[in-house]
Structures are given as structure tokens and as C-alpha cells.
Amino acid sequence: MERVPILKIGEILLVSIQVDMSDQTAVALQEDLAERIVATGCHGVIIDITALDIVDSFVGRMLSTIASISRVLDAETVVVGMRPAVAITLVELGLSLNGIRTALNVERGMELIAIDRADYDHDETGDDPIPEPTASP
């Protein structure tokens, strides 16, 4: 069985799915990723699906599960690079990928995680109430 490699780049785990995954491979990725999040202490996971030419309900469910698991492990997951044809098909299939954050590409995904962590760190210091988005500190 093939395994999908997980790369650590700075504070982020990057998973770039390059193969047509069998269901087993998808389940293995789910497990590997949970372990790597704990082992590395990363707070961000980016799953790049640019190379996937389809996402069916099984892979869709895997993505949702990964997002939920990483949330429990205090990491934010962003799925990036979904192709237009895949997105159109998912809508037709009725799969909404609830709870998954998405971005157009890896770069935007990293920005999203950075913004999140910045907010989070801000909360952690706790000296100010969360500022209104429009008000500058």
C-alpha cells in the first residue's frame, strides 16, 4: 500500500496528495497525520489536493475527519488547491465539506493559518479584549 508523505515546513505540516488514493491509503494518512501533529507540535496542517482529479465521498469524509482530529490536537487544517471540476462535482454530489477551511493555493493556505495563529497568540496574552476587526490596536 502506498503512503502519502507528510512534510514539515517551519511550523506547518504539508501533505501533498499526488496519487489516486485507495481507501486504505486515505485511512493510513489520517492516522499518520494525527501522530505527526503530536510528535512535531505543529499548529497548522495544509492538505494540497491540486493533483487530485476527483474527490468522492470517502475522501471528502477523510478530509473532514482530519480537520476534526487536528482541531482536537490544537492544529488548524486548510485544504488547498481544489480543482474547479472537483468542486462542481462535490456540489452536485451534495458534499459540503462542513468544518473544513479551504484556500486556493498553498501560499494562501499558509496566510490563513498565520492569521489564525496571530489571533490566537493575541488571545493568549489576554491583556486586551479581542479587538473589533475595524478598530486598530
Binding site: 482529479d53 465521498s57 480543482r83 462542481i88 462535482t89 452536485e92 454530489l93
Partner: peptide, 29 residues
């Protein structure tokens, strides 16, 4: 993979290829 090969050969549009391959994946499972 088989469904995609045939879908390409009968010249389905990219979106239609994706739809039929996805449907085949669901039903084969």
C-alpha cells in the same frame, strides 16, 4: 482509472469526466 480512460476517449468535457469518475468511485465502493 478505467472509467477515466473511456470518458476521455468518448470526449466528455473535463467536468463531465470528473462527474462520471466520481459516480463510478461511489458505486464501485
Amino acid at each position: 482509472q478505467l472509467v477515466r480512460t473511456v470518458a476521455v476517449a468518448v470526449r466528455l468535457s473535463l467536468v463531465d469526466q470528473t462527474k462520471v469518475v466520481t459516480a463510478a468511485s461511489e458505486l464501485a465502493r
